[in-house]
């Protein structure tokens, strides 16, 4: 796909993971997790905004984008275990995780079984609103959000949807609905910023406020006027918050004992 510097393919946990990269090699890296019906393409704008400061690695989760998945859609735990395997295989444990929508659930689940791999996290539009755990509740919200997203978002979503297919998306969505994300948030102890667009119908303000309050080290940023997918509609703001997390990470790494750093 156009816009990226290069693509890397890594075998891990039985999948051939695809990740697109953009930004200066050798610098700090940021790992991006897309949501449902999405792919690495969602991160092009964000990666461009962040490129002067850090390298973006936009991962395709199994079954999405250019990473082939199993026939049956993976549940949240399956996705997060695949992510853990990839992070170990590429030695990216502790990198800043920038996640969008369903990707947030995967990142939170990662903190449950592999906390050592989790670095600072940016949760953009963390699903699923615990007060609306049904397809019936969510469908109108998704449609409303599609209207509010900029028109350039449509081809990106279409690509993501076609690569993963309707069946997989529906199945994954069911898994997402049944994922008790609010009970796991307390385990995400790294510095976390929750970001929400003020015109996002999918993750309403009270829910996102609750998420930020449940996190041990959480903060809420609300970008006025933006819809659900901020990495596409407000990449500059997202990149700015990510940079702040990068500095916080480098502070915590330098504060750690040197021998601890070498064995990571």
């Amino acid at each position: 796909m156009r816009g990226w510097d290069d693509h890397e393919f890594t075998p891990a946990a039985g999948y051939r993971f695809h990740a697109a990269r953009l930004g200066p090699p050798g610098g700090p890296e940021v790992v991006c997790l897309h949501g449902i019906s999405a792919s690495h393409l969602h991160w092009v704008r964000f990666a461009r905004a962040l490129a002067p400061h850090a390298r973006t690695v936009a991962l395709d989760l199994p079954g999405f984008g250019r990473t082939r998945g199993p026939r049956r859609a993976l549940d949240v735990r399956g996705l997060s275990r695949a992510l853990a395997a990839w992070l170990r295989a590429t030695d990216r444990g502790g990198a800043v995780l920038v996640t969008n929508s369903a990707g947030c659930q995967v990142a939170v689940d990662l903190a449950v079984h592999s906390p050592e791999l989790v670095g600072p996290v940016l949760l953009n539009g963390p699903t699923i609103d615990a007060g609306a755990r049904t397809v019936r509740h969510h469908l109108p919200r998704v449609v409303l959000n599609a209207v509010r997203e900029p028109p350039s978002h449509l081809p990106v979503v279409l690509y993501g949807f076609l690569r993963s297919g309707p069946r997989r998306n529906l199945r994954t969505f069911r898994h997402l609905l049944h994922d008790p994300v609010e009970r796991k948030l307390g385990l995400l102890t790294t510095p976390t910023v929750v970001v929400r667009g003020s015109r996002d119908p999918i993750t309403p303000h009270p829910w996102v406020r609750e998420v930020a309050d449940l996190l041990p080290d959480g903060r809420l940023t609300e970008v006025p006027g933006a819809p659900h997918t901020l990495n596409h509609s407000s990449p500059v703001e997202m990149a700015r918050i990510t940079r702040e997390l990068l500095t916080r990470r480098s502070e915590s790494v330098s504060a750690r004992a040197p021998e601890e750093r070498t064995d990571r």
């Binding site: 940023t221 609300e222 918050i241």
Partner: peptide, 10 residues
């Protein structure tokens, strides 16, 4: 300025 950016992104 920092607080404003942290809260609203820009």
């Amino acid at each position: 300025a920092q607080r404003a950016v942290e809260r609203f992104g820009r």
